[in-house]
């Protein structure tokens, strides 16, 4: 089976007052269909730039991103990004936010939206406005809005790092539950090693700037995972060692 996403030789630098700043240097990796890959790296190493390139929002200086055998040339509703700041529209209700992405022909957009609202556990909040919801609930809306358009790929850029530890853990469990019902190919960018071990099938470790892939780890543990198992702890130690910790 050919890989779903093939990233070849991605390089990116930005021009600054002090000359060009090399952010990403020659990154190569592939993601299989239905696979969940986490990319872990220190803060400010260019993770977000990497995701913006893979999602098609930013053009790389060199290299290309191929999805299903075709090089991408921009964003697409088949590949939805969920970002740290969140982009749920505050002027639309929860239901309107979910219906926003439903462009094509759907027999009953409202019913479809409401089904996904209840799937993320927000039944009863369809007519609520985002400012009436908590941070964790907003993440659920964002996730539901992404899933309702049935994307083939979900790109997540530190999706849970603005949440408190407990809510973040709840959302991880929730995300795993949803992915077990509705299979998607996922790429998660994070600085949280626990989060990566909890969710991913494979973990890529990025070096400090300019970002390059420094190491890769398989995560062979079955779900639901216990992060306190000796194997998980050993994996975490091995990953942290890559950061020099």
């Amino acid at each position: 089976m050919p890989a779903k996403i093939v990233v070849t030789d991605i390089t990116k630098s930005f021009s600054t007052a002090k000359g060009p700043l090399n952010v990403i240097s020659a990154i190569n990796f592939t993601v299989d269909d239905g696979e969940f890959v986490a990319i872990v790296g220190p803060s400010g190493c260019g993770k977000t730039t990497l995701l913006n390139i893979i999602a098609g929002f930013v053009r790389p200086d060199r290299g290309q991103v191929v999805v299903d055998g075709t090089a991408i040339c921009g964003p697409s509703p088949k590949r939805i990004v969920i970002s740290q700041q969140g982009s749920v529209f505050p002027w639309l209700t929860v239901r309107q936010n979910l219906m926003f992405g439903l462009n094509g022909h759907h027999p009953d957009k409202m019913a479809l939206a409401d089904r996904y609202v209840s799937m993320v556990g927000l039944k009863g909040f369809e007519k609520g406005y985002p400012h009436e919801l908590s941070g964790g609930m907003l993440k659920r809306v964002e996730l539901a809005r992404a899933l309702v358009v049935k994307p083939e790929i979900l790109y997540m850029d530190e999706p849970l790092s603005a949440l408190d530890a407990l809510t973040s853990l709840q959302m991880r469990i929730e995300l795993r539950r949803i992915l077990s019902e509705d299979r998607h190919t996922c790429v998660l960018i994070t600085h949280d090693v626990d989060e990566a071990i909890h969710l991913a099938d494979r973990i890529l470790v990025l070096s400090a700037r300019p970002a390059a892939i420094q190491a890769a780890f398989e995560v062979p543990f079955p779900h639901p995972r216990n992060l306190l198992s000796p194997e998980a702890v050993a994996l975490k130690v091995a990953i942290l060692r890559e950061f020099g910790l």
Binding site: P75, G86, S87, F89, L92, F100
Partner: peptide
Amino acid sequence: RKYIQAADNFGVTRAKLFLQV
């Protein structure tokens, strides 16, 4: 920008981008 980017991601028409975002 994040709202415009999200609308771009969902591939909405220009009319919808204007009216709803």
